[in-house]
Design a protein around this nucleic acid. Sequence first.
DNA 1: AAATTCTCCTGAAGGC
DNA 2: TGCCTTCAGGAGAATT
Length: 270
Amino acid sequence: MPELPEVETTRRGLAPSLRGRRMVAVQVRQPRLRRPVPPDLGNRVGGKTIQGIERRGKYLLFSLDGGTLIVHLGMSGSLRLVRRATPEKHDHLILSLDDGRHLVLRDPRRFGTVLWWQGPVDEHPLLRDLGVEPLEREFDADFLYRSTRSSRRPIKNLLMDQRLVAGIGNIYANEALFLAGVHPTRPADSLEREECDRLATAIKTVLARAIDEGGTTLRDFVNDRGQPGYFQLTLGVYGRAGQPCPRCHTPIQRLTLGQRATYFCHRCQK
DNA sequence: AAATTCTCCTGAAGGC
DNA sequence: TGCCTTCAGGAGAATT
């Protein structure tokens, strides 16, 4: 499931090749994604030039003349730049460029989203309530401490709440809590300042490392098939129930929190 | 108001 | 081997 690092890796992989390219054709092969692809998407983006690609949380923002193409990859989405458009199953959207290449959105589970928005992109209903960027300076121990004082929710649920901090999904929430030594079920307001310090640092570390590794994995991403970087990432706890903790060898435990699989070491995380 | 549950969808994995 | 069931997951909507 693409989280911030996978989305950022995609952005970095695509941006150099797409900047300045004009879209000459748009093919919507399957409009039924999480929300329907706008029927007039072709008219909206056809003929327009891509000025650049930004990221906000897990959203990719393609700046075009007079508007923004907003893309969310859901949990199984990927964007690839290919030389020949030979659509395969689940290739739902094909944007053909003026250099003969094609940007293909593949999303088997169709939880993704493709939208067109005119006007300031941070005013879009899906973006305007997003919280801070976890890799920005404003997200730090102090921010985390302040924003956890008034909530008794489990800290993991809070980390995954996009309205507080944008981009952390299930995998990296699990990993950051493990790295920080904080138990996922801890009520947010029970975290000490010291723990917020460790957690904020852990979040930045885990995300930055994943982006680095993703960049390595996807070096030839734009030329060929893009596999999400997290397949390459060494995970400490996620998906490792019953296996030994990398730090103390105690078996990793699993529970469900907010309908999400949650993995932790009950010895290392308090 | 805050927290939980439901919902979309299909590939993978497990059970028989 | 193959069919059937269950599960996973992002996040908005609905419900408690």
